[in-house]
Every structure is written in structure tokens, then in C-alpha cells.
Design a protein around this nucleic acid. Sequence first.
DNA 1: CTGAAAGCGCTTACAG
DNA 2: CTGAAAGCGCTTACAG
Lengths: 332, 332
Amino acid sequence: MKRASIKDIARIAEVSVATVSYVLNKKEGSRISEATKKKIHDVAKSINYTPNKIAKSLKMSKSKLIGLIVADISNDFYSNIARNIEDQAMKLGYTLLIGSSDENPEKFRKLTELFSEQQVDGMIIAPVVDSDDAINKLIGEEYPIVTIDRYLKNVSLPGVMINNSEISEYICDQLVEKNFDEIIYVGYDTKLPHLLDRQDGFDKRISASKIKSKRILIGIHNITEEVHSKLRENLNLNKKTAIYFSSNKLGIAGLRYLNDNNIRVPEDVSVIAFDETEAYHLFPTDIDFVQQPLIDMAKESVKLLDSQINNYTPNGKRVIFHAKYMGRNSVK
Amino acid sequence: MKRASIKDIARIAEVSVATVSYVLNKKEGSRISEATKKKIHDVAKSINYTPNKIAKSLKMSKSKLIGLIVADISNDFYSNIARNIEDQAMKLGYTLLIGSSDENPEKFRKLTELFSEQQVDGMIIAPVVDSDDAINKLIGEEYPIVTIDRYLKNVSLPGVMINNSEISEYICDQLVEKNFDEIIYVGYDTKLPHLLDRQDGFDKRISASKIKSKRILIGIHNITEEVHSKLRENLNLNKKTAIYFSSNKLGIAGLRYLNDNNIRVPEDVSVIAFDETEAYHLFPTDIDFVQQPLIDMAKESVKLLDSQINNYTPNGKRVIFHAKYMGRNSVK
DNA sequence: CTGAAAGCGCTTACAG
DNA sequence: CTGAAAGCGCTTACAG
């Protein structure tokens, strides 16, 4: 698998490597004769030349690689983000490295180190709990980073996110209006700020109302099992109840529980879930859900990163997108 | 973002770059004094040194990068494969580049070129229709490649796949046994060999039986709409009917159709779907499905690729995994 | 025990 | 119009 280099082209075309480089990169101005240009292109083709971007990267201190760190690339939400980031990155000439942190700060740190050693020009990251040290180290090096979906409390980093608190307030208001006996918030037992925002938004409005509420918080490792057991404990079908699932995984786990136990939506219980997934469409009832503008978010994250790469500025801006409540038939 | 290099370490520690390199890579044997070693490590730490893998790659002609080309990383099936490949690749010290071909041979070719220019050590690919030229070019360069999920008819490449034909035969037999009036095969209108195998396996057994069958073939671009309209045309609920959806996307689209039209499973129609997805669990009935051993397949693909990278052999072997029929409650 | 030097494949300021 | 040369950050065979 020995590849041809510009040296080989230079030798065969009997010109210098400099000339080859100029011609192949169209950097000649009009200085090089058409005959020479043609010869170089012909030789390049005949020996099947492909440029070595590693060498170019080394020389230029630009790899045209960007790293994406998500919690888990097999999660629908992140794989959709990844796909849209991929498309946008390609448009701007970047290739995408992907890594999954599994919410593990040590894995997260390793990924940032790995990507940094691979000389990615920048990273788009979904920070995990206790990843502050790893991130501060990157910031100390003025490494271009942009957050997506999540953000950090004590670190100001450019990034894209949604209006988590507001959308939760809105959802809560929708439910309060319908006079449920009880509204159950299903969230994660976590310190992730964007998830706490969802919770806080809900809390703020529910406590301003007279409606009773419960909060079910789930660990991140046995989502399905925990959601099932906690719903079993907490769901009282004798009351007029609504459940707000604050993530796609929680929504899917919860709907599966309802399904398995023949609990009808919205007859027996009303439901609003977060994020969009094909799975919601297979549930007997069309599920109300909160839609994040993933394409726009992904695009913006790459745009932000690209501008950080080209012109680093500390304390970059956060771009807040508006999530949208998609009313269907799961709330009575 | 100017990074420290071994040159900086050498200067500060007052040793040669060679010595620094030996120490940092633990290649000193026992030749270098403990004092020197300690000094080098201390300096490295104090100036926050991180190795530049691009430089190393250039020198070593090994990037420790592998490229993964799937049809669409946002497809559940591929994102799960990607996740398992990521884990296995990391274990072997590789970082993963990901690209989506969208079943488009031109995009596919561009990705192979891009990855090859980025000097990935090898690629794991899901070939698309008419990608033979791009792949043959790679083979001509003895580029290590391994196929996953799919394979090519006229090219012998190492890869992993399942026993598509056999599992379809088995599924067909299961259905034939139950004496349906009609069995509908839902597949893609495609030339992809692994999908044709699924179809052929089904055809072989159905034509050996006395059961009537229909074949619904769908284009790859408007799956949901096409599945819906063709099911509307072809599904006759007055007969005892079974449907075999030969991919996860087809299964999800089909189940959504049944859901939207209040068609009960298995009372009104029996269903078997391909691949595993959380979505199936939200359908009112537990859906029978064909499970591919994704983790094992992903692991094996990386193993195969790694061995190709370390010791290239043309015409590598294909590893065939056995898919498993998971009977649930959707067949009557 | 340690270092000087060549070289991986590029780019580009400079010289002619 | 074209080329010689330096240098990006590494590794390693060789010399001492």
C-alpha cells in the first residue's frame, strides 16, 4: 500500500516538488506554463496520486478533522445530531471523529485527550457530570470547543442548546390548564444543568398552581427497569393523572410500561414526552412531544466551531433554540 | 493554541529530542539513566506536553484511524453497529471516522477518497449499489477494507454478515406452517445482494409451499409513504394474512400503518419484522423479530480489519453470523 | 548512556 | 516561469 507522493510526480514529470505542489493546489497564479501544468496533472493521474492529508496537516497545523463527543452514539437523539453535524461538517471540509462518553467523566477525558492528540481542529461536545477539569484544560489551551445539547454551569463556552426551562414551563402550563389531579415529572437523578433546567421550569409552574405533583428521578444506568418499577409504585389510575417524560429514553421506557400493563393513553393517563422518535408513532396513541430543532442546532454548532477555529475568541456566545410542543392525542 | 513539542522538552531538559522520544515511548531498554528519565517526565508535565499523533502518523505510516462508512448513521441499525465498532476500535487503539453514504455511490466514493486521503489505516464499509468501482480502486491499492452487513457480488472482500437467505427461509417456514391464506413479503426494490438473499430465501420456501404470496417492493427514498400506500393497496383483511417486513425501517413504517388504521396484530394480521428496535416494544403487541448479533458482528469486523491492517491478505474470509428468530406475540 | 542526522510528505517564502 | 531549501513534530538506525 505504498502510495505515490508529489516527489514521485516531480521525478517523473521532471519538475520540482514545489512546482507540483503549486499546480496541484492551484496556487500558481499564472506563473506556470500550461504545458508543465498538463504534464503534472497527467503524471498524477497515471500513477494514481492521492494527496497525503497527514503531511499537509503537519505542515499547516490544520487537520480538517473535528471531534464529536456525545453520551452514546447509539442513542437516537445523538445519532440524529451526529448525522446533521456530519453533513454540515462535510460542507465545510471537515471530517468527523466520533466518540461516546457513556456519561463517564474518565471516558470523556480520555476522548478529549485522544482527539486532541489526533490534532482535531476543534470539538463539539456534550459535557458529562464532573467533566469540568477536562474541559478547563482544553480551554486553557484555547482549544476550539462548542457544546451541544448540554452546557456547563461555571464555564462559559460557545454552544447551542434549547430553552429547557421555558419549554418545561410551557408544558407544565398546558397540563395545569387541564386540571389533572396529579402531574408526574419523570426525569433523571443528575446534576446536568440542562436537565435540571427542565425540572426547574416544571417545578416553578407547578408550585404556582394548586395541582399536586410527584417527581420520579431515575439513575442513568437501568433506565427501563427503574422507570417501570417507579411507575408501578407511583402511578395511581384512580386519579386523573398526567406524566411528563423529560427525555426520549424516559419516554420510550415509560410508554413501554404503559403498553405492557394495558394502561390506555389518554383514557387512563395523559402523557407528554421529550424529543422525537419513530418509536412514539408505534404507540397506539399519537404521543404529544417536545421537538428540538436538531438540524438547525447541528448546523449552528458546526458554524460556531468553524468560527472558533478560524478566529478563537474566549467566552463565545451560546445560541438558544426554541423547542416546540407538538400536540397530538395523548393528553386529555 | 501553540502546543509544546518534544523539541521544547529537549531544550528545557537539556537532552536530545531522540532521548525524549525514547523515554516518552518507553523504548529506552534500560539505557537511559533514571535521573534523565525523571527530568524528561517532569518537564513534559510542567509544559503540559501532549504528543502530536499527526507527526507520528506521518513518520510511522500508521494513523491509528479507521473509517466507517454506513448508509446513514442516524438509522438505528447503523448507529448501534457504529457504537459497538467504536468500543472495539478503541480497545485496539483506533479512533473512528464516520461517514454516511445515503445509498449514493458518488457520496460513497467521495467518502472512500476522503478517508483514504486522511490516511485511515483501514475502512469498515457497508457498500452501496454501484460502488464496485470505488471499492475496486481501494482493492487495487491493497487498502485494508472489511464489509459489514452487506457484501458485494463480484468482489471477494473480508467481511461480516448474517445468513440472510437461511433466516428468511426459516421465517417463511414458520409462517407456512400456520396456514395463512396469504403471506406478504415487504422488501426493497434494490440490487443489494444481502437484501436479495432475504428475498430469495423467502421465495424459495414459499414457492415450495402451496401458500399464496405477494411481494411489496419499496424504493429507498420515501419508505414510510410507499409502505403505507402499498399496504393500503395490497392488504386484504378478509384473508388470514401474514406480513414479513425485511428491515427495521420497513417494519417501523408498516407497524405505523397498521397502528394508524386500527389494524390489530395478530388478530387482523400477523407480523414478523427484521432487526431489533425499541420502537417495536411500543406497539400494542410484542412483535416477532429477527435479531442480528450486532455486538459480535461489530467486534469481528474490527478484528478482521485489524488483522488486514497488520497483515494484508487479498480475498479475506467472510464471517457469517446466525440471525435469531425471536418469537413474540405477533403471529397467530 | 546519549546525540546528530535523516526522513515521513507536504507548503511556501525566497531567490533567481 | 521554476527550484532549492527550510521546516512542521515525530522515530530510529547508527555512531560514539
